[in-house]
């Protein structure tokens, strides 16, 4: 098997065709406890990271928003209030279990009036060209098999002047934080995963996939390569997470 035929799945190299299926297994396994685990793992700080994503989106009434890898619908719920009944939010996720949890949750909260649920692959988005005012992908890009293809696909469906926001784990900006974060990711996270979801492997994959994900500058370069302009990023919590923003010219 040549090097081009394989791709990273955490620290493992797997055939390209298998990554999607392996990621799907991880998310099928954790879907029901996904929100609890997010709160536990981040101490609730993930809500602040998402809050900043909303602030940077510039979304107003009547806008059309695509929330890729939207999972359990945190961002979608917030966007739904902002765009109002004249606007639309599409919650897209490749994983049926995550989409199911997200849909149930949003319907239960009564916020599904202006929301559409679409099972879609970020690399081949099933939407017309120049369709959305804003696209977000929060903690999803690192699981995508071909990230460059996904960024080009997002560029295609975004309206000129529209924004892409990529919220993703990144590289801590100081050595001391990096070493604490390593200990936390490889020792505490799998233990928590075992305790709450009875699945340590999925959280081992989470820690490994974060380390394999492009750092801040590399991801910014990938976005420029996909023809996004005004690409900038904001480090949050010492660079553990970064929010990248690009505009379609």
């Amino acid at each position: 098997m040549s090097e081009q035929d394989t791709i990273d799945f955490g620290y493992q190299q797997v055939p390209v065709a298998e990554k999607q299926e392996k990621v799907a297994e991880v998310f099928h396994s954790v879907a029901q406890k996904y929100d609890i685990m997010n709160d536990l793992m981040s101490g609730g700080v993930h809500r602040l990271w998402k809050r900043f994503t909303i602030e940077l989106s510039g979304v107003r009434k009547g806008h059309r928003v695509l929330d890729i890898a939207g999972g359990t619908g945190d961002l979608t719920a917030m966007f739904s209030k902002l765009v109002g009944t004249q606007g639309q939010v599409v919650l897209a996720d490749i994983n049926a279990s995550m989409l199911q949890v997200g849909r149930d949750r949003l319907i239960d909260r009564g916020t599904a009036d202006n929301i559409e649920f679409v099972q879609a692959n970020a690399e081949t988005l099933p939407f017309p060209d120049n369709h959305f005012d804003c696209i977000t992908i929060a903690f999803g890009l690192r699981n995508v098999t071909d990230k460059n293809k996904a960024l080009r696909s997002m560029h295609r469906v975004l309206k000129p002047g529209g924004r892409l926001l990529v919220l993703e784990f990144s590289k801590p900006q100081t050595e001391w934080l990096s070493s604490i974060y390593d200990q936390y990711s490889f020792k505490v996270l799998p233990f928590m995963g075992k305790l709450v979801t009875n699945d340590a492997e999925s959280y081992q994959y989470l820690a490994e996939s974060i380390r394999m994900h492009p750092d801040q500058e590399t991801l910014a370069g990938m976005m420029r390569d996909a023809e996004f302009e005004a690409v900038r990023y904001h480090n949050m919590t010492g660079g553990i997470v970064a929010l990248h923003r690009g505009v379609k010219p």
């Binding site: 700080v45 809500r47 602040l48 900043f52 904001h234 919590t237």
Partner: peptide, 12 residues
Amino acid sequence: MILTSRLALFAA
């Protein structure tokens, strides 16, 4: 860290 603290304060 400053950004996260500011966001936390505003959220509260």
